[in-house]
Design a protein around this nucleic acid. Structure first.
Lengths: 186, 186
DNA sequence: TACTTTACAGACAATTCTGTCTGTTTATCT
DNA sequence: AGATAAACAGACAGAATTGTCTGTAAAGTA
């Protein structure tokens, strides 16, 4: 039974709540109550709720970047890696009851016009886009064509996430997966 | 200088505000103030804020359904119609400063678990999906293949909307447009 | 032992939110 | 003119929000 310090406990608790009910749907009082900390401790580590949101998105970004890096370093054709990335998305959405993309969900809020949060969203999205471009460039020689293909897969990935959330069904992911794989040569 | 009744004025004002800043970012007090009505008038026509949201989404849905119906009835190949539909999306996003899809934005909120709102979202998304399936079926003979293609275009459309919003850039729409057109035979 | 850091407990202020309520004014119709 | 419906004005309740503030307890460290 480990008991991390207050700062980490707050981040983990808030992360779970933000993801489940959205940034604007969770209050600080609930976060500190579930994290078992005092409000003074909260404001010692996070000067505002927005800064906590930034820290949450940054942590998520680090995790996903790590997975993409590992996937890129593994051997195997790009087609298979793209397929695996979509499979992972499907698993994630099912397990999280189709809560969708935390970045898109946060960006849909008017509070997200805070520059720090907006920058986190942009950074993550551009990183994901770049990931697909790299995978495409390994299968496609022509530079412009590879970039275009990577962008197409990126849009498919985003649409799959969004519509799975809206419809609470998995089929958008499987459809997007097939479409993405078809974009890459054998 | 027309002056519609209070009910319509509320719906129009709320619609513009909801779209601009999101359902949770706008309060009733602001709506009635900008609409120039009294709070009592508001609650005479809309028993709750949620019911107003439903009415807003329903009105949006009727408008978009109407456009799709007209587009389907016009002559011309499916490829061109799909291309026009994406062009219209791009124009809409640019003019609205990349506020994205009102349905997806509302669905990202925890308040959207209200059954009425959730049903509106589902209905609209299924209608859009069906629209692309119809267009695909006119270009593709095989039934299953046409449905699959329509679904792929639907996912592309959704991803274009979402990422244009996240990145505040138009390229996801143009990329998705090309990808969608390529899915249909000449 | 004395000091410092970390965290807890919780009152409080200042807003903001939805929704209810009382009462007044204006317009329309007979 | 008189009756009826629609809309206005705005106070109020009750709850929830973020953020500040005071004080206390427990732990490690010199």
């Amino acid at each position: 039974m480990r008991k991390p310090n207050a700062k980490d406990r707050i981040l983990e608790t808030a992360g779970a709540l933000f993801f489940q009910r959205g940034y604007s749907g969770v209050g600080i009082n609930e976060i500190i109550e579930k994290a078992g900390t005092a409000k003074a401790s909260f404001y010692q580590y996070y000067p505002s709720k927005e800064s906590l949101c930034e820290a949450w998105l940054r942590a998520l970004h680090d995790q996903s970047e790590n997975y993409r890096r590992v996937l890129l370093e593994e051997p195997g054709p790009s087609r298979e890696k793209v397929a695996r990335y979509f499979d992972r998305l499907g698993k994630f959405l099912v397990e999280s009851d189709f809560r969708g993309c935390p970045y898109s969900n946060t960006g849909a809020l008017s509070e997200a016009n805070c520059p720090g949060i907006a920058e986190q969203i942009r950074e993550h999205k551009e990183a994901t886009r770049n990931f697909f471009r790299i995978l495409a460039s390994r299968s496609i020689d022509e530079h412009a064509k590879a970039d275009e293909t990577g962008d197409r897969i990126f849009v498919l990935y985003s649409g799959a996430t969004a519509e799975s959330q809206n419809l609470k069904e998995l089929w958008p992911v499987t459809v997007a997966r097939s479409a993405a794989v078809d974009l890459l040569p054998i």
